[in-house]
Amino acid sequence: MRPWSLVACIGLLMVSVSEVVDAEPLVVEAALDRRVVAPLLEAFEQSHPDIELVFHDRSTLEVDTLVERGDPAPDVVISSAMPWQMARVNQDYARPLHSREARAWPDWAKWRDEVFGFTFEPIVMAYRLDLPRHMMPPSTHADLHTLLTTRQDMLRGKVTTYSPARSGVGYTLFQQDARYTPRFWDLVAAMGNVDAHLEENTRAMLQGITEGRYWLGYNLLGSYAMVWAQHHPEVIVQVPQDYSLVMMRMAFIHRDAPHPRQAGEFVDFLLSRDGQRVLAGQTPLFSVRPDVSGPYTAQRLRDQVGDQLYPIPINASLLAFVDPQRRDAFMARWRREFQRSR
């Protein structure tokens, strides 16, 4: 059995029971937690019973590799690694979508009508309830820096954040942070000073906080953290008050998609009012559309935290982040700063 058919078998096992026997298959490769996105997939399957959805939840790097290999190409690609998605689109791996929904999608959340940012996930800090017992929890980046430098003894080993080397999302977030302020490197140095643990994903960070290993996490995906906090009262989520990055999951139809029509319908559904309503009501992914209401909408988030939301822009500047030299330089600097005081 060849590797890809093995993958397909696993995929089939993972898919919820499909009622329609002779349905057309549609393969979605996604860096998106299946548990989080399940309501959206169910809603799609209900409205499109003729399409048999095959949804693979993978890491961003896996997804990117699958896109490039294209053997066979997935139909729809979803990833939170925005620069890599962007690079693939620039390399002509995407097929443009000419639908009403696609045209109506806001310009800042799409590129060339080929790739669409369909979620609106704030980047947050999270801390364990233990923290406020000993100190004032941080509400801004400056607070965090002060905390790290003044209470480093107490926080040593208790701080976690993304590993820029092992996580595409983490790398992107740090790059974006570095673009906004040079003091970011002081923060990196401070985190290095307290021997911050570098994790691969938000879930691991949340797990660590719940278990008491960490007291403070930086740059977590708000979407996951907020859901986690609902079930784990010891975890507090803090949207930074000075500025808060916003990450978007980017979806595109693969150029060589075996089922372009179904892929188009899927992406259309992601952008549609129905799909976005599910996002807003049943997932913490936040809807981009202003005409959708629910607990999780970009509009509601703005109302709550004010104007300091800074979505990572979907434009050509993202391409700079995947430039190997730039990445090398960035990583070199990171390492230097992280180990500055040792």
Partner: peptide, 21 residues
């Protein structure tokens, strides 16, 4: 030679018509 590709350059290339760059 070492190059940190500036994001601004790419945005200039892409223009508002979102060209491939």
């Amino acid at each position: 030679p070492v190059l940190e590709i500036p994001a601004a350059a790419l945005q200039i290339l892409a223009t508002r018509h979102q060209e491939r760059v």
